[in-house]
Every structure is written in C-alpha cells, then in structure tokens.
Design a protein around this nucleic acid. Structure first.
Lengths: 220, 220
DNA sequence: GCAGGAGTAAAACAAATGTTTAAATCATGC
DNA sequence: GCATGATTTAAACATTTGTTTTACTCCTGC
C-alpha cells in the first residue's frame, strides 16, 4: 500500500476500498479512512457527498476494473471449444475474485462483493444490469454449447448457478476453508489449481444434468 | 412471529436471532431488540452480560438446533447406497439452511451463518470443532464411498468444498439469485427441487473428478 | 405479612460517529 | 501582486448506541 502523494481524492478512494472490503459498510468509519489516507475527515464529505456516495463510487470502480481486467472470455485462443470457454470463464472468476490485480481475495475487495451478494446495497442494483447479467448470459451460452442438444435456457440456469456458486464460495468462505482445509484456501499461488478443479467438476456436473434433460424425441 | 408472553429471556433470544440474522451484528441495536421483544433495554444487559454475549448465546443455539433437526444423515433408509447418503446430505443442508424449521433461509438465521463464513466472530470458532468439522468428515466419507477406488482423502476435499459451496451459495446469494433467476431463488417450496439438482450435478462432478484421479493424465 | 432477592423500568452516561461550519491555505488567471 | 474560487483544516454539532445507575415492582419462602 504505497502512500504516494497522489491527490486527496485518489488517496481516499484507494484506502476506502480496502477498508470497506475489510470491515463492511457499517463498521467502516469516516475517521479511519481519513486517518489511513492522511486526510481530514471533512475532506471526505467535501469530495464525496457522504459516506454512502463514497461507497457507491468505490463499488462502481471495483466492478469496472474487475470485469475489465478479467473478462469472462479471458485469454481464449481463436475458435475455442465450449469446454475451453468454460475453463476460461472459471479461471476469470477466480482471478477476478482472488488475485492481487483483481479484487484481492478476502483480504481485499472480494469481500465487498461477497457482502453485496448477501445484502445488496442500493448502489449494487446498477451493477447487476451492467456487469452481472451479461456475465450470466455468457455462461449460459457456454453451457448450452456444451450440452449441444437443444434445451430451453431455463433448464441451464441451475448449472450456471452451481458453477458460479463454487467460485464464489471460495471467495466468501475463504476464512472457514482455511480452518477446515488449509491447502484449499484460495491464495495468490493456487488459483490455477482450484479453477482447474472447479472446471473438471463442473464439466462432469453438466454432463450428468444434461443426461437427465436430453430426453426429447429429436435425438435420431 | 407469535409474541406469546414467554419469559423475557426467551423473547429476547427469539427476537434477537431474527434481527442479528437480518441486519448483522453491528447493524443490530439493543434498542431495536428491546422494542420488538417488548422488553426494556436494560433487561438485555441484565440477562445476557452484553451485546456480544447475547450474540454468542444465539449462535450456539442456532447451530445446535440446526444440526439436531437436520443431521447430515437425515431420513436415510437402512443400508443406504453412498449416492443416497449424498442425497440425504445435500437435502439436509438445504433444509437446515433454508427451511422455516431450520435457519429460515435468507430472511432468518441462515444469513447469520453466511456472515460468519465471511468474517468469523470469536464465538464461531467453537462451532467449528463441534459441528462443522464432523460434518465435513461425514461428507468426505460419503464421497470416498462413491469414488470407491482407493484414494487419499486430501484428493476428495475439493469435491466436498464444491458440494458444500453450491448449497451455501444458494443461502448466501439468495437475494441476487432472486434478481438473476427468480425461479431458482430458494424458498419454502422449491428446496426439494434445488437439492435434487445439486445432488445430480455433484454426482456428475464426482464422477468426472474421480476419472482424473484413477486414470492419471488426460482431462476431458 | 413481610424480608429479600430476582426481574423490570426510566433515565442518565459516555463514547463513537456522520455531518456541518467557518476559518485558513493553496492555486490559478489576470 | 492579487482576487477569486477550490481545497483543506480544526472544531463543533447532533445523533446514535452500548452500558450503567437507581429506583420500583413482583414473587417466594417463612
């Protein structure tokens, strides 16, 4: 955390993101942000109207950088197979949620997202349409391609939930996973392994589910 | 929420459980508990030493009743297959987390557990050894039986995390799931369907993973 | 009946905390 | 150089909130 003499506003944003992520909205005090950013308390109300607007600004920034740096089709070769696209999707989720260049896992802003899942703030609603719903649609497209057989998209949504659920659980429950099974607690160095596992597990899950739903009479 | 003239202490416990679950520890005020329980604020500090002890008492009660009413081997026939045992395990998780007789899903105490996963309180550590670790061991046993082939238990832990992860994600992210895919947001009436899906998906996942364990190299 | 303790109530206390005020300082254009 | 507006600061303000105090009520055992 370099405290470069960046502009006051920038220092507030940087520090507040960490603190909101670490402690949540209510537990975060303007005074702690001010202290860590080496800024007067009133400067925060001057640059951002109030605590809630500051939070909204940070949430917006977190989503933008996360999905810009780690889009759901991150690092795909041309003409990828649906399986490869799923792998990229899962890897992107892990890196977005957990890597240092992303939301920094539990220590950082990943917690902020996790808290929003649990109790969405007013500021979160906007993120839904802009980032989350397109992301969901991408995943459902991928799953549809893997299943191959024609299938209503509603049938595929639970698969998407299961896949996203695994990824997010690693972020949400990292502290407990660390106590229960330390090797599998996400950290900067095991993201590839964890993502690879979730990918394999999910491919198997999709296969099992698609076996139960591909019963229409169009299979020759 | 019947406000029977139960003892003051009991009314405090009942109401505080709901409020802590709904709002989290910091956002919950003694005064709101007092008001909803129709009790004087000082009575809370009288019966429970302070806010934190009250919270600890509630956490203990929540875990106890949850795992007593919905044990991991809930409703199994004699001589169950490992697959049946997994189904019972998953169903128990859904009912424990979401049903009205359990932790009442998101509206109720399920959120309390979700918050603990994200940032465990001091009171939570005791719950780990008493409830969560045995629960994890039960699941790993079941998975080992399903895989059948001899396999170090460390290899099976990620499967357990993926399965538990799906179940808990439904509890943690219920508000967002409701916005993203309303039919699949957990409620009192669709728990069987959701649990069944997670079961099938997970069986497929275990199969895929065990294929990579038993036949090294070459992934799908 | 009543002494004594358990339970409850109203009010006060003290600390934390978001916000505002008003003055001081800085930067920029002229 | 200076006037003007933007920024920063210290202090004050108002509210919330956990806790304690003190007095009152109710019940139980004798």
């Amino acid at each position: 955390m370099d405290e470069q003499p960046a502009s006051t506003k920038e220092r507030i944003l940087a520090v507040a993101g960490d603190i909101f992520g670490e402690k949540g909205f209510k537990d975060t005090t303007i005074r702690l942000i001010a202290e860590r950013a080496r800024v007067n308390v009133a400067a925060i109300n001057y640059h951002f109207r109030d605590k809630e607007s500051l939070y909204a600004a940070i949430l917006e920034e977190v989503f933008r950088t996360g999905f810009t740096r780690f889009p759901g089709d991150m690092g795909l070769p041309p003409q990828p197979s649906p399986q490869q696209r799923l792998r990229a999707f899962v890897r992107a989720m892990f890196y977005r949620l957990q890597s240092r260049e992303g939301w920094g896992g539990l220590a950082g802003r990943g917690r902020l997202i996790a808290r929003e899942l649990l109790s969405p703030s007013p500021a979160f609603e906007a993120m839904l349409d802009r980032y989350i719903k397109p992301h969901r649609d991408l995943l459902v497209d991928i799953i549809a391609d893997i299943v191959a057989a024609p299938c209503p998209r509603e049938k595929l949504l639970p698969c998407a939930i299961s896949i996203i659920g695994q990824c997010i659980y690693y972020a949400v429950a990292a502290p407990v996973i660390g106590l229960i099974s330390p090797v599998n607690a996400p950290n900067e160095h095991n993201l590839d392994r964890l993502a690879e596992f979730v990918w394999v597990f999910s491919l198997g899950g999709i296969a099992a589910v698609s076996a139960t739903i591909t019963t229409p009479k169009e299979t020759p």
